[in-house]
Amino acid sequence: MQFQDDIIAYTERAALGALMLDGDQLAQVSRWLRATDFADPWHGEVFKTLLELHRAGGTTDPQALGAALAERIRPRLADLPRIHEVLAATPERPDTLTYTRHVAETGMRREVGLQGVLLEAGALGAAQAGESRTMTGTCDLVDAALDTVQERWDRSRGRTPTAGLGPVRLRAMAQDPARFLRADRQVTAGPRRDVGVERVNERRLMASLMLHPSAIGGVAEWLTPANLTDLACRAQFTAMLDLTRTCTGVDPVTVMWETQKLVHVAQEPVDLAAVRAAVEEVRLHGEAPERLAANVAGDQLRRIAENATFHIRTQAGNSMLDVGEAIGVGRAFTTTLRRVATALPHERLDTGDRHLALVPTPALDNAAGQASAAVMSR
């Protein structure tokens, strides 16, 4: 909104003017304020110049600033008449710390709000490659950025930082502003989600779990019925989880019997013929549950990352909420994405010999397979 943009620009000018008049405040302000927090790039250059003057032991008055700025970025880009605009926006008795906190908060909210696109790019890469390393690495990077913002937020409020800073390498990478542009280009150029394909993947996974019940526990570690997009699959997975908890045998007949009791979950009668066809297809092709689980996990990563982009941006953009709350939302999504990524191998293996959490037990799976064959032969 134009009004909000005008207020931000006005506050940035007032903050810079206050720092020009009282350069001693730069030592404290620099603990939480960055040049990238300024929405106006020229304001960011002015702040960098003020910091350089202060650290060199020089004065930060308008004349010294103008000369140093022209030397740093050349006279044309320095646009020295704008320094008068900065001074004109500065009250007679400026509250330097308050103004700079406002500028820093705006920058922090902007930085937190952009983390979602990184998660989308990581999810896309992991889904396409069929491996978890891309997703977990992206989550590490996002968490490092959130930790850094949390530290700055605490310092700007006069609190002892509570976030544990990650490795220096990750912290440096998290401060690269170009990473957002690269991620956005990757997401824009990548294929869009196909909900139809996602539902087919879910149906095939449910069919495979009916044939390989020993894999149900492993899938349940990262997938819940509520996260399935296909309502019939929600009911089937709920039934399988209930049967597993009660140590009841799991096979297509038992699952479908229990599923018909869960019409309130599926919201409509489950198509028995479609389920039987899916079970038969999976059985004939001998598709292992870990492979089908990896497909669904890739779909889940992309869906969750899309939701993350919306919710993180919404929370960060709501000035009525504490920045720490937006950071908490971001961390909740990285935790969820890491958990789902465990269904994928750490690295892509061309041999197909993937090491996953799903380890079928032959005895249980053979029993389920025999029951399925009996049903399909009817």
Score class of each variant (00 low, 15 high):
209 L>H: 03
242 D>P: 00
254 T>V: 01
252 P>E: 04
253 V>R: 14
211 L>V: 09
206 M>T: 04
220 A>L: 05
244 T>M: 14
255 V>R: 00
247 C>H: 13
231 L>C: 01
230 D>E: 15
250 V>I: 15
232 A>E: 14
224 T>N: 14
207 A>R: 02
215 A>H: 03
248 T>A: 15
236 Q>E: 10
204 R>T: 06
225 P>Q: 02
242 D>V: 06
208 S>C: 08
219 V>K: 08
244 T>W: 15
210 M>D: 09
214 S>I: 00
227 N>S: 13
244 T>P: 00
254 T>H: 05
251 D>E: 14
244 T>N: 12
246 T>Q: 12
253 V>C: 08
250 V>T: 10
240 M>Q: 13
209 L>F: 04
230 D>S: 10
236 Q>S: 06
226 A>Q: 15
247 C>S: 12
238 T>G: 06
235 A>D: 06
236 Q>F: 10
228 L>F: 14
238 T>R: 10
243 L>D: 06
204 R>W: 04
228 L>D: 14
205 L>A: 04
253 V>G: 12
247 C>T: 08
230 D>P: 10
237 F>H: 07
244 T>Y: 14
238 T>W: 06
249 G>W: 12
210 M>G: 11
223 L>A: 13
212 H>R: 06
225 P>L: 01
222 W>R: 00
247 C>G: 04
221 E>H: 11
220 A>S: 15
221 E>A: 14
217 G>D: 02
231 L>E: 12
208 S>G: 15
204 R>L: 13
221 E>K: 10
251 D>S: 10
225 P>T: 00
236 Q>P: 01
217 G>L: 04
226 A>M: 07
225 P>F: 00
232 A>L: 04
249 G>H: 13
252 P>F: 08
209 L>Q: 01
216 I>Q: 03
227 N>R: 15
256 M>S: 05
243 L>N: 11
245 R>C: 03
218 G>H: 04
230 D>G: 07
254 T>W: 01
246 T>V: 07
231 L>G: 01
218 G>M: 05
220 A>R: 11
209 L>G: 01
218 G>W: 05
209 L>M: 03
238 T>H: 11
215 A>N: 02
205 L>V: 02
214 S>M: 02
204 R>I: 00
235 A>C: 11
242 D>L: 08
250 V>C: 09
241 L>I: 12
209 L>Y: 04
210 M>L: 06
228 L>P: 15
214 S>T: 01
238 T>N: 05
229 T>Y: 03
241 L>D: 06
243 L>M: 15
241 L>Y: 11
253 V>I: 09
245 R>K: 13
245 R>Q: 09
241 L>T: 11
233 C>M: 03
214 S>C: 03
215 A>T: 02
229 T>E: 08
213 P>G: 13
226 A>P: 07
254 T>G: 02
204 R>V: 02
248 T>Q: 14
220 A>W: 08
219 V>H: 12
235 A>R: 11
246 T>H: 13
219 V>P: 07
244 T>K: 12
239 A>T: 15
